[in-house]
Design a protein around this nucleic acid. Structure first.
Lengths: 236, 236
DNA sequence: ATTAAAATATGATTCAAATCATTTTGAAAC
DNA sequence: GTTTCAAAATGATTTGAATCATATTTTAAT
């Protein structure tokens, strides 16, 4: 396998420097940047596994990652996504527990690793960073709660629509402003919506037939956003 | 209605002082204690509503509280419980958002209120308190994720069993060491497990028939913990 | 280009659980 | 104690979606 060249900039020159580490001082940025690991993960490769010892923080420079947990009978449930500028594994580091989920690259991704020690050192003396963590956890919790309610109460169709909306919100559109900027298998969408692959296929086909969406292989175009929101039975 | 007498001690004499506020200095405890409101909520009364302006932190001195969110068609979903020593509403204060859920007293409860300003003042200069918040959010997130997976993947029977286990873990037993220390309607258990009241009743009756549990009105005795865990299809 | 495996698609069948309907019991208010 | 209403219980029916089976298409490896 031919390794992709890795040219991730240092933290102060990072394109995502307005994200999680935005409040870091220059010396702090240097601490982090100095020994960071620059990594490339090919689509489908696993960054860390649920249950494994948490030894580092991951910062997603470029790419897309899904976080999944194993449930009953080895079935996967997607609990969250990460995009450019997001950090992964922070929760386990802070609670000194194994990784809570498996992180998998959904496309070729560039990811920096920061050692646990450096991360904990910096956060210990930076209340703003602590606050950033609180904000992140808060957001993740809000998302998990909403997801719980959707799975508990909504029909499969509503959940598929909800899933498409979440994908669009998280990753945006391609340049055409209509195609969701992520390619996922039907099985993955199912793992997100908490249903089976077959039901996912059928429901997508129905939405396609009604021209609410348009399926081009793994690309999904949203033709009628209003109607899709209606199908999702969302009100917020 | 006859008001119950309220004799909640100050924070440094609180029976729960080993919980959230355990790392507060004496001066900080005084700041909090000085203007705290002592409140009594009768079983069934609402402490705060989802969507309302978040103006204070609540600290549960004695009692039991359920946190619920409204879902589709006005249906309720229980997302969490709080017991003695837990704080409520902290997330909304920190993210400067309305309350994320409705908090309802599940039995007569004594609750202290702390103003938003005081709370934010104290947390601003206390990294240990920030860390405590991080731990709390982390724990809540872990619970929400597990709940999501259960609802997505498990059968109603498994979810009911899981719910009983969670109640026992959260609130413990009565003095007999067999009766779960909380009384809930069948409808509330349903709101927790993400199913209907009828299915809840039927499933409880089945577990009762197999002598895994014993139903005495709203009291639930766990006769065979091992078998109940087996029914829940849990492995951790 | 070929092959094998995985993903997608579709139809048929089954089934868990929701919904609907009714009766019984328990709790709260007076 | 009585009355009313809500909760619990139970039976019947319906339904959404899972499961099973098979065919087709796509993808990845060689």
């Amino acid at each position: 396998m031919k390794r992709k060249s890795i040219d991730i900039p240092s933290c102060d020159n990072c394109k995502n420097s307005k994200d999680f580490f935005c409040n870091l001082s220059e010396p702090e940025k240097q601490i982090i940047s100095e020994k960071k690991g620059d990594n490339f993960y090919k689509k489908g490769q696993v960054i860390f596994y649920e249950g494994n010892h948490a030894n580092g923080l991951f910062c997603l420079y470029d790419g897309k990652v899904k976080l999944t947990k194993l449930g009953k009978d080895g079935k996967e449930q997607i609990i969250r996504f990460s995009k450019d500028g997001d950090i992964l594994g922070y929760r386990s580091l802070l609670s000194n527990e194994p990784y809570h989920a498996t992180a998998t690259a959904m496309e070729d991704s560039y990811i920096c690793t920061i050692s646990k020690e450096k991360f904990l050192t910096v956060i210990e003396d930076n209340p703003k960073l602590s606050f950033k963590v609180i904000q992140l956890l808060s957001k993740d919790l809000k998302g998990a709660e909403q997801h719980l309610i959707d799975v508990a109460q909504k029909s499969v169709k509503e959940r598929i629509a909800e899933s498409l909306l979440l994908l669009q919100t998280t990753f945006g559109y391609l340049a055409d402003n209509r195609t969701i900027n992520i390619q996922m298998s039907r099985s993955e969408i199912a793992d997100m919506a908490g249903t089976t692959t077959e039901s996912t296929i059928r429901t997508l086909a129905q939405l396609n037939e009604k021209n609410i969406i348009e399926l081009n292989g793994k690309n999904i175009v949203i033709n009628d956003m209003k109607e899709l929101i209606k199908c999702s039975n969302s009100y917020d």
